[in-house]
Write a protein that binds this DNA or RNA. Structure first.
Lengths: 224, 224
DNA sequence: TGACTTCTTAAACATTTGTTTAAAATGGTC
DNA sequence: GACCATTTTAAACAAATGTTTAAGAAGTCA
């Protein structure tokens, strides 16, 4: 059905077109979402012909998947590395160090303002209505990162039982994800609030808040 | 342009049709989002004709707004009342009481399993790509609720300065919103994790975690 | 009944969508 | 240049979308 005449990895002279398509697609998907982005929009933004999406990728959906394929591992590695670096550092790292490192790896893109600034939006959208194969986001990203973060937390906070670790991770990730979504919402509404704050300061709050929340489990280490 | 031949509040015999349309629309909008729901889907689900959406509401977008008009005040009042009830109770309420009451008013729909179970999804979607007039969600819902919650927090936790109150609210709401989104994602992926937990227990965690996080500001009540 | 408004319906309409087609252009190799 | 595969292009295609139309049904009141 799909008329892909050339393998995507082929290094023929068409490579530049594929890159332009992927970049334009990523930009548009992130800003408007999958359904609100038309193939013609992508073609126009990349300066390519409408048919090239189908020629090179075999359809809009495959282009979407390809956009994800390029970024997902990258994001995952960034977060895993941030955890690893803290845990393998000399001396016994403090809980705050772990939290800050992870929070920065999560929100960092918002600080640096590069591509990920937009890709995080795509993640939030993909969570709400998925266009990736079932479980992709979970298997390629959420599960590995949560696993590593869980192991680190167990090491630093031996008073946490298995359930507590899982819950705590959810609560922390919730704070971080909401930062991204809410920032978008508040920004676009010109709302003057906590978002005038520098991201670095926001990270400070999240670290302090969550560290205290985690230590609250010390005294009551019974069941959930 | 819109050919609305009758005021929406008119109590003619067509009223049943309008209700069926709104209910079907709410159900579909919540499950699939605005763009992924077609007027024909709504018509089919409500057993009405395709044209009736335009006849009664003057367009798909107005029907969407009408769906929101019915629920937004309701959700806001539920949350405001939950705060008010705690704060006006005899004795001095504990911080945990406030947090629990608010968390339950937020997640309660997930427990009861009524319409709001789905409407919360709509809220998350509307945050990501809005189809309501600019700032509606913020003005009609987020701002009033955050204002009341902020006042309650200031009363119960006098050590919090203005910035801290705002940040703390964001962090709490983030945990709650993410519960809703993540639950959906994990559920649909058949993932065995913290979500096998009963919602009541999850609320316990959020209350304990956040209360400790808030009290962490006691010792360091300086600037943000 | 008859005139009138209100509602319902199937059909048509104009756009937009993702995709396909077939021809033209391009680039490389002999 | 001739031949070939590869790429690019404009056009066409089928399907779906929100909306409109015009005719008919149903109800209301004299």
């Amino acid at each position: 059905m799909a008329s892909v005449h050339q393998d995507i990895r082929g290094d023929s002279n068409g490579r530049g077109v594929q890159d332009r398509l992927i970049e334009a697609a990523e930009d548009l998907f992130c800003r408007r979402g999958f359904n609100e982005t038309s193939v013609r929009d992508i073609a126009a933004a990349s300066g390519c012909n409408v048919a090239s999406v189908n020629y090179y990728f075999g359809g809009k959906e495959n282009l979407y998947i390809e956009v994800w394929r390029r970024r997902l591992a990258q994001v995952k590695d960034t977060r895993l590395t941030s955890i690893e670096k803290v845990m393998s550092a000399g001396g016994s790292p403090r809980l705050e160090d772990l939290l800050r490192s992870y929070a920065i790896s999560f929100l960092g893109p918002l600080i640096e303002g590069d591509w990920q600034c937009r890709f995080i939006n795509l993640m939030a959208r993909e969570m709400m209505d998925p266009h990736l194969p079932r479980g992709t986001l979970l298997n390629e990203m959420a599960t590995p990162v949560m696993s590593a973060l869980g192991a680190a937390l167990r090491e630093l906070c031996p008073w946490l039982d298995e359930t507590n670790v899982q819950v705590v991770i959810l609560l922390i990730v919730g704070q971080l994800v909401y930062m991204v979504c809410a920032k978008e919402m508040f920004d676009e509404s010109g709302y003057p609030g906590a978002f005038r704050m520098k991201i670095e300061d926001l990270v400070d709050h999240i670290v302090r808040f969550s560290a205290a929340g985690i230590r609250a489990y010390v005294t009551e280490n019974g069941n959930a």
